[in-house]
Simulated scan of single mutants.
Amino acid sequence: MTSLGYEKPTDPARSALMRRVRQTGTKAEDDVAAILRQSGLRFRRNVKSLPGSPDFANKTQHWAIFVNGCFWHRHQGCGRTTTPTRNRDFWLAKFAANVKRDKIKTRLLRALGFRVVTIWECETRTPTKVRRRLKALMR
């Protein structure tokens, strides 16, 4: 049992697959970075000095962006938000913890006066959607 009260997955193939999932430098993040550069917005990546280490942030202009994977962060209504059938209790607890952590870090950033935008992985396939979402930062 882990500190979260659920068992770790035991399937070696699943474990190997999960180890290959990147946390930073994903294609979705790179796509958002390109759009930010095209829009003339200056930013830093993976800002560890801010709550939740936003994927992109500008401390001077007080904005932060999280690029969330639909599977890991439970994008409501998205087809990529599936739940594995093996070890279901483990995954449900893990996903619930991820969502709770996301809400907390967004709340903390907003308390510091930051505008926070979450871009979902599936949205990065349509650059116009991302640009529309980022308009709030371009004020």
Rank of each mutant, 00 (worst) to 15 (best):
A13Q: 04
S39N: 14
M1C: 07
S3P: 06
T24N: 09
A33G: 12
F43T: 02
N46A: 13
Y6Q: 01
R44D: 07
V47L: 11
D55M: 08
N46R: 07
S49H: 12
R45W: 10
A13C: 09
L134R: 08
F43W: 14
E123G: 02
K129I: 05
V99C: 00
V32K: 01
R44K: 13
R107A: 15
S53T: 15
G40C: 07
R86Y: 11
M18F: 04
A28H: 01
A111W: 04
V99H: 01
K8P: 00
L17E: 13
P54C: 13
R115Q: 06
N58G: 07
P84L: 03
R132E: 12
W63T: 02
D102H: 06
L50I: 08
R131P: 09
N46P: 11
N98F: 00
K94Q: 01
F43I: 10
R88T: 10
G25Y: 02
A136L: 15
V117L: 01
R45S: 15
M1F: 07
G25E: 03
R74K: 11
I65H: 05
T85S: 13
S3A: 13
V117I: 10
Q61T: 14
T85E: 14
Y6R: 02
M1D: 06
A64V: 09
L137D: 05
Q76A: 15
F71A: 04
L50S: 13
T82E: 08
K94E: 00
L41R: 10
F95M: 05
V130I: 14
R19W: 05
T106V: 12
N98D: 02
V130N: 05
Q61G: 14
F66Q: 10
F90N: 00
A28N: 00
T124I: 02
C70K: 06
A57D: 12
A93E: 02
T106L: 07
T26F: 09
R110P: 00
H62R: 14
H62T: 07
R37K: 15
K8S: 05
N68L: 13
V116R: 03
D55A: 07
L50P: 05
I65N: 04
K103G: 10
A33R: 13
L109P: 01
W120Q: 03
P84N: 06
R14Y: 15
A136Q: 09
R88K: 13
C70V: 04
V32R: 03
T26R: 08
R125W: 04
I119W: 03
A111N: 07
A136E: 11
K27C: 04
I65Q: 05
S53Y: 13
D11E: 06
D102R: 08
H75D: 04
W72F: 07
V67F: 06
M138F: 11
A64H: 11
L108I: 00
V130W: 14
T2F: 09
T106K: 09
R88C: 02
A13M: 15
T82Y: 15
S49N: 12
R110E: 11
H75L: 08
R37C: 04
W63F: 11
K103Q: 09
V21N: 15
K59Q: 15
K8C: 01
F95Y: 05
N87Q: 04
F71Y: 15
R74L: 02
I65W: 11
Q38L: 09
D55H: 13
T85M: 07
V47D: 15
T83C: 05
T24M: 15
P51W: 07
